[in-house]
């Protein structure tokens, strides 16, 4: 198990760790370009506010074979495991995917499928997508938003969507600025870390998982639970007679 760093929880600290997760595959990739623009804007805003931040990029293209192998075998390569740990240690995430065949990239979804259910709990996440046509504009809200709702992440109100005609338009810059400002504000408020700290025990976890707050030793485990009492020779509490 590698050394893990906890996110820089709490308000007014830093440097904030932002991870840009990009499922773009071209070189250059318009998805990566969009992600870079959003990330740069967020960094600029944070710097103006005296809050340093770093951006770490996770490119999924080079991990595609590892993602596929892990999907069928359950075994993650060292590179894939490293990407998951970087994501776990992030204070905020920018998630960017291309739209293929009217949906998010299969690679992007397959990668998210490999994440621990609690890996992104309360992490601010900025949703971004690129597509060949404006007709796909709702993919972000109809596919990415429910996916990260399941992950209990804190999706920002503004998502960013770009098609070829947007690259020359000032409106894209304005939307990027709006979304980046939301990300910067949430990071500075430390709200993600605070929610995760307060509610961690209310979520389901797996022992030895990848989340930075995951249980890894006896000191992390709650032994005062119905199941732990049953494990030590106790009985389950009586069934609720009104239960269906």
């Amino acid at each position: 198990m590698s050394e893990r760093e906890a996110p820089a929880a709490g308000a007014g600290r830093g440097p904030y760790r932002v991870v840009l997760l990009s499922a773009g595959t071209g070189n250059p990739s318009s998805t990566r370009l969009l992600g870079d623009r959003v990330a740069q804007k967020a960094l600029d805003l944070l710097r103006e506010e005296g809050a340093p931040a770093t951006v770490n990029v996770v490119e999924l293209g080079p991990l595609a074979v590892d993602v596929a192998r892990a999907t069928v075998s359950g075994i993650k390569s060292a590179d894939l495991q490293g990407a998951i740990e970087r994501l776990a240690a992030a204070d905020g995430v920018i998630a960017a995917t291309p739209v293929y065949k009217a949906g998010i990239s299969g690679l992007f979804k397959s990668f998210v499928d490999l994440l621990d259910n609690d890996l992104l709990v309360a992490k601010p996440i900025l949703l971004a997508a690129t597509a060949g046509s404006a007709r796909h504009a709702l993919v972000v809200d109809e596919q990415m938003r429910p996916l990260f709702a399941y992950m209990r992440a804190l999706s920002l109100p503004t998502s960013v969507f770009a098609t070829p005609e947007d690259w020359g338009a000032t409106e894209l810059g304005e939307r990027i600025e709006r979304a980046a400002a939301e990300l910067a504000a949430l990071l500075r408020a430390g709200v993600g870390g605070e929610i995760a700290d307060r509610n961690w025990s209310a979520h389901q976890h797996e022992f030895g998982g990848n989340a930075t707050r995951a249980e890894r030793t006896g000191a992390d485990v709650d032994f005062d639970s119905d199941l732990m009492r049953l494990a030590t020779g106790g009985s389950l509490p009586p069934a609720d007679p009104d239960a269906p």
């Binding site: 022992f207 485990v221 020779g233």
Partner: peptide, 25 residues
């Protein structure tokens, strides 16, 4: 292979604990 409650039960009774140690890193 993943459940702390089973490790706890083995420990409570002083029984053995076996990890199959296959198909995993």
């Amino acid at each position: 292979i993943r459940t702390p409650e089973i490790a706890e039960q083995a420990a409570y009774y002083g029984n053995g604990y076996f990890a199959n140690n296959i198909l995993a890193p």
